[in-house]
Computed example of a mutant assay.
Amino acid sequence: MKKFLITLMMVSLIVLAACGSSDEAEGSEEGGEDKGTISFAVTPWTSTVPPTKVAKIILEDMGYEVEETQADVSSTFVGLSRGDLDVFMDSWMPAHELQFEEYEDSIEMVATSYEDADSGLVIPTYVEGIEKVSDLKGREDEFNNKIYGIEEGASATEMMRDLIEEADLDLELITSSEGGMLAQAQKEMNSDNPVIFYGWRPHTMFNKYDIEVIEDDYGYFETSSVHVLANNGLKDKAPDAYEFLQNWSIPLEDVEEMIVKIEDGQDEEEVAQEWIDEHQDQVDNMLNN
């Protein structure tokens, strides 16, 4: 009898353990597979937000946890090279070419988001007689001898400094955040004053203001293409996420439309989810579904 009871207890324990394992597996299935964490670099530019949010939602649906790390360009490339950051959705070429070449042993260009993104020195269209950078020579005082730019550390900031020097322009580059730069530019345009600042597409500035990019006849600013970067470890760490990002693309006009919605006060992730819902065929293609 004693042996029978011991045997019965052991069988009961095995059954309970099996039930527990089954419940655990079922709970895991219901909650979605946890595949680990992917870290995105987010630079302080409006163009970075929509593609990052769209990719974030898709990756979370795939079972990943996604972290967003605010960083300037220099910190982004260093973080990617060290493996502290996994992905950056908004790398501009050729503007970021030097940083990419410096870290190309540890960073990979995974996909092209979109092409034909203009950038350079921007003026209001009411300023007459200036179509290219060399036309600024001798007229610097009309602009209070200032050009307004984005933050220190950005490739565009160094390119503007080099351009000012080569073109021998009597202009001081005033660096700030994107928001600070645009606030100063808007202040001048509200008074119909001539103003020079840095501009790029995609950006709502071209929807809000009557402005134009002037031709860079010194060759510093070219039409850009925007790329997805990843550290070299992502392919092994998250192969299905890597494959999704390899297939990534999004129209420039869609990014601008999402930026407008976000700046009008709509929640960033709601805007991204709307895009996903309205472009499910494109999302399926990126996921190879």
Rank of each mutant, 00 (worst) to 15 (best):
E104M: 12
L234S: 07
F77M: 02
V213G: 04
N193W: 04
K137R: 12
A154N: 05
I250H: 11
D84F: 09
V127C: 07
K2Q: 14
E158M: 12
E269Q: 10
I130D: 07
E102Y: 11
T175S: 05
Y218L: 02
K261S: 08
G129P: 14
W275H: 00
E158Q: 11
L163R: 01
S74C: 04
Q186P: 15
D254P: 14
E188I: 15
F88Y: 01
S119E: 12
T37A: 15
G20W: 14
Q280D: 00
E166R: 03
A154L: 06
Q266A: 12
L245P: 02
D240P: 05
I58P: 00
T48W: 11
G20I: 13
V66T: 01
D254Q: 10
E269F: 07
H279K: 00
T7E: 05
G83H: 02
A111V: 07
E140Y: 09
I259C: 13
Q186Y: 11
E278M: 03
I130C: 08
E104C: 14
V255Y: 01
I6L: 15
G83I: 03
V66L: 01
D90G: 01
I250Y: 08
Q266G: 11
E102T: 15
S22W: 15
V78E: 06
K237G: 12
H279E: 00
S134V: 10
L163K: 01
F244Y: 04
D210S: 09
D162I: 11
A154R: 02
Y103P: 07
F197E: 04
E68D: 02
G219C: 01
A156K: 01
G79A: 06
E30C: 15
I276F: 00
I174G: 07
S12Q: 13
M10V: 14
D135P: 14
A238E: 01
M181I: 10
R201A: 12
A117K: 05
G129R: 10
S22N: 15
